[in-house]
Design a protein around this nucleic acid. Structure first.
Lengths: 187, 187, 187, 187
DNA sequence: TATGAATGAGCATTCATTCAT
DNA sequence: AATGAATGAATGCTCATTCAT
C-alpha cells in the first residue's frame, strides 16, 4: 500500500495536472504550480528535469484518469455495441466534470506544433490506446458495417474525437448526442 | 490602383497569420511578428489595440483562405454528395499545404481555455459557417441517411473535425481517408 | 466676445488641465488627452511643441482658475484680516471642488525634480503671486504681529502651503481648520 | 558576522531609495534601478512583488533615515522649545544633504493621486509619527500658545510641511528661516 | 490648420532554469 | 530530498514625438 498521495512529487503532478488542463500548458507557469502545490521551485526541478517532463507526467495521468472512469462505466457491460455507446456517454460525463476542456493530448499538440519527441510519443500512445479500444469492441460485433474492422473502428474514433473537440469549442454536450445519432445511422 | 498588399497593416496581419498558425498563438511573441514583418512595435499597436485583436484578424483571414480554397475546389461541381467529398479532399490539400497545423479555430480554443468574447465569437462564427455548408449540401441530397438533414449534416461535420484534429496529431493524411471511408458507409 | 471655447486648442488645454490635475502629469499620456479631447495627435503638436509646453499652459490655467475663484470669494470684503481668512476658506472650497488634488505648482515640481526652465518659471511665478497677495493684505493691517510685513506674510504663506499639502495627503479639510486656528494664535 | 549591507536586496532598496527620491517615482524605471544596483531584473521581482512594494520599502527607509538624523540632532537637548527648533534645523540640513527633494511621503502622493492602499498607509503612518513628535514636545511646554496642545502642535506641523515644500519649490533654505521666525511670533 | 500613420526607446512584469546550501 | 536566492531572456504594451499629406 502506497501513501505517496501527500508526497512532494505527488503534490506537484496533481497540481500541474489540474492547472495544465484548466488553463493550458503554455499559460500555466512554473511559479503558479509550485505556489499552489506548496513546494519550492528547486523541488520541482529535482523531480522533473524540465517543464516538458512534467508535461509527460501530466499526459500519463490524464490517460489513467480517463481509463479508470471508462472502466467503471463499462462495469458489467458485455455487449460491444453497448460498450461503444457507453464510451461516448463516459466522455460526456468526463467533459462535464472537467469544464469542457477537451482532450489533453489533442490540446497539447495544438499548443506546441513543434512538439518534442517525448511529448509526441506520450500523446500518440494515449490516442492509440483509445483507437485500440474501439478496434477491440468492433471485432466482437456480429455484423460489421462496411465489412472492415479497422474502417469501422476508425469511423467511430473520428466521431469520438470530433465530438470531443466540438464539445470543447461549443462548451456544450450536444456534439456527443450528434455522435450517438451518427452511430445509430452507422450501425 | 491600390498597393495595400505591402502596407504596414497587411505586413503585420500576414506575418501574424503565418506565425500564429505555424507556431501557435501563445508561443508567438509580438517581437517576432514585428521583426519578421519589418515594422515598428508601436505600428502594430496602432493598427491592433492588443494581441487579442490581432488574433481575431488572424482567425478571419484563416477562414477567408479556406473559403477561397474550397470555392476553387468545388468549381463546376453540382452533385451534393460529390461536393461533400470534395470538401474533405480540399481539407486534405489544405493540411498538406499548411504543415498539418489543423483547424485554427479549434487550436485557438485549445490554447486559451478562458477565451475572450471576441475570439470566441469569431471562432464559433467560422465553425458555424462550415456546419452550414454541410447542411446546405445535405438538403440537396435525394435520399438522406437517417432521414434528418441536421443529424446527417452533423455526422459529416463530426467526421470533418475529427479527421482534421487526427491529421494534426498524427501528421499524416490517413484520417481524411478514414473519414471518406466512413462517409461511404453512411451514404 | 470670444467663442474659442470649442476650438481645438481650447479642447486640448481644458482636457489636459483636467487630466494632469486629476491623474498627475507623468501618469497622463498624450494619447489619453487627444482621445478625450477628440482631436488628432498631430493637432496637439501643432499647438504645443511638446508635452512640456502643454504643461506650462496647464499651470497658467490653474492659476487663472484659482484667481477667479478667490476674486469672487473676496468680493465686497475690505478688512485685510478677513480677506486673509477668506483666502483660506476659498482654498478649502477649491480643494473640495477638485478632489483634494493639492497645489498644481507644488505637484508638478514634486513630479519633475529636474524641472525644465519653462515649467520652473511658471510655477515660481504663480507661487510668488500668492505670496504677494499675503504681503499686500498684511501691509494693510493696523498691527502687524512680529513687526515685519514680510515675516508675517511669509508665516501665513507657510501655513497656506502646509495646509494645502496636508489636505492633499489626508484627503480631508481639517488642515485648513488647523491653519485658521494657527492664524488666530498669530493675530 | 552579517554582511547584509551588500546583499542583493539591500542593493536594490538603497538604489531605489536614491533614485526615487532624486528623480521621482514615476520617472525612475525598474531598468535604471537594476542597472545601477548591479542585479538581475528577476532578482528585484523575487524580493519585491511589484514596483509598488519597492516604493513602500523606500518610504519606510526614508523615515528611518530622517529619524536617525533627528535623533542625532536632538542628542542631549531637553528643552521642548529648543527641540522643536532643532527639528526645523535638522530638516534644513536634511534638505541640503538631499538636493532639496522635499518630503518623500508628500511627493509620492503628489505623483500618484490614485495612490494604492499600501503606499497611502505607509505615507500617512510616517506623517503621523512626525505630528506625534510635535504633540509630545508641545505637551512638555510650560506655557502653550492658544492653550490647546493639539492646535499648537498642528500649527507647528503646518509650518514644518509648508517650509519643506517651499524649500523644494524654491530650492533654497529661506522657507525654514521663515518658519523659525513664525515660531518666534507664536511662542 | 488639421490629420492618419509610423516610429525607437522604454515600460513593468514573467518566463523556465540553475546554483549553492 | 529539499530549498531560498539568483538570473538572462522574453513577455505584451505605452511613451512622446515626427512625418507626409
Amino acid at each position: 500500500m502506497i501513501t505517496a498521495d501527500t508526497s512532494v512529487r505527488e503534490q506537484i503532478v496533481s497540481t500541474a495536472d489540474r492547472l495544465f488542463y484548466k488553463q493550458g500548458y503554455n499559460l500555466t507557469g512554473i511559479n503558479q504550480i509550485i505556489e499552489e502545490a506548496g513546494v519550492a521551485k528547486a523541488s520541482l526541478y529535482y523531480h522533473f528535469p524540465s517543464k516538458e517532463d512534467l508535461c509527460v507526467a501530466y499526459l500519463k495521468r490524464r490517460y489513467e484518469r480517463w481509463l479508470a472512469m471508462l472502466t467503471k462505466f463499462l462495469e458489467g457491460i458485455t455487449d460491444p455495441k453497448e460498450r461503444i455507446i457507453k464510451c461516448f456517454e463516459c466522455r460526456s460525463e468526463y467533459l462535464l466534470d472537467n469544464d469542457f476542456s477537451g482532450c489533453s493530448y489533442i490540446r497539447i499538440i495544438a499548443e506546441m506544433p513543434q512538439r518534442s519527441a517525448k511529448i509526441n510519443k506520450q500523446a500518440i500512445l494515449n490516442k492509440e490506446k483509445q483507437r485500440q479500444f474501439f478496434i477491440d469492441e468492433v471485432k466482437k460485433l456480429r455484423r460489421i458495417p462496411g465489412n472492415s474492422v479497422n474502417d469501422f473502428a476508425n469511423a467511430i474514433f473520428l466521431l469520438f474525437d470530433g465530438a470531443t473537440v466540438q464539445c470543447q469549442v461549443y462548451r456544450e454536450l450536444s456534439p456527443i448526442d450528434n455522435a450517438l445519432k451518427a452511430l445509430k445511422i452507422l450501425f
